[in-house]
Computed example of a mutant assay.
Amino acid sequence: MVNTRAERLRTPRSTVRPVLQVVELQGTQESTGDRGLGLHEAGLGNLEAAAALGQDPFKSQVRLWMEKTGRRDLLHPVRLDNDSSAYWSRLLEPIVAAHYTMRTGRKVRCVNTTRRHPEYPWMCATVVREVVASSEVQLLECLSVGMQMAPLWALGVPEYIRLRVLHQLAVTGEQAADVVVLLGGQDLQVYRIERHEFEIARLIRQERAFWRHVERDQAPPASEGDG
């Protein structure tokens, strides 16, 4: 019997709590700058959390749903040029991480792993860097933002970045992550995002609602700007 795509995506219920899965990355990169999504079609990664909730200023729920349900050929491709913000952000990550260590005194290691939530296997998260031997903070997100995008950081971490980090904390079970961002090539800022169980529960509930649309192969309601 041939199952539909929706049936194949549907996660079976289980009374046994799955063991946390760690999958080594092998240089997988998304054309939009999203990294670590070799399991892209099989679940929601941290870089997709905001889009799943309709909070990503660069990707709509409908576009994400089309990607997850194998409709990429109907989308306009997103090109990654050598002078794009995503390219330079990746190139500068090691430098940003090094300056984080200089400023805070905390050691950092590059791990490049993808993990899955022990209870919700459709949730996965890429962990690029960890903070070594710290009881206060365990994960590190390094970003480089150009002058055009810097205003989004005027009041601190933008909501779409905060949702990405909360997704990471939900999947990994860690307590806190530092977000270090280089603004306009000269202003380095460090922000702490701590685990909040109520917010994480709400995040999982909203992401699960989106994932049901993927399982059922039914598009989520279109919002303004999805056209």
Rank of each mutant, 00 (worst) to 15 (best):
R10Q: 07
G173I: 02
L139G: 00
A222D: 09
P151H: 03
R205H: 13
L44E: 07
A219W: 07
R205P: 01
R164M: 14
R129L: 00
L25C: 13
V214D: 06
R17H: 09
A125N: 04
A125D: 04
A201F: 06
G70W: 14
G184H: 04
V179S: 06
L64H: 06
L163K: 00
L155I: 08
L80A: 11
E30N: 13
F58E: 14
E197I: 00
P158N: 06
V127I: 14
V23Q: 10
E207W: 02
T4A: 00
P12T: 01
A201H: 09
E199T: 05
L80Y: 08
L140K: 04
E130Y: 07
E67A: 00
D178R: 03
R103V: 15
F210E: 03
G185N: 10
Q55I: 01
E48V: 00
L37S: 08
V128S: 12
R63N: 07
E24D: 14
N82D: 13
G33L: 04
L166N: 02
V19I: 11
Q186T: 13
D73E: 14
E136G: 03
A86I: 01
R116E: 11
M149E: 15
P221F: 08
R8H: 07
R5A: 07
V131F: 04
T28S: 13
Q168C: 10
A170H: 03
Q138L: 04
T104P: 06
Q206Y: 12
T15G: 08
A42G: 10
R216G: 03
A97C: 12
K68F: 07
R10V: 00
Q29C: 11
L44D: 05
A86N: 05
Q29D: 09
M66Y: 06
M102S: 08
V137Y: 05
D34M: 11
Q21V: 15
A52V: 02
A52S: 12
L75C: 00
S84N: 01
L182P: 01
T101S: 12
R63K: 11
A154Q: 12
R202W: 10
R17P: 03
T101C: 08
L44Q: 09
H40G: 04
L183S: 04
L92H: 09
V214K: 04
K68N: 07
N112Y: 08
A49W: 12
D187N: 14
E215H: 01
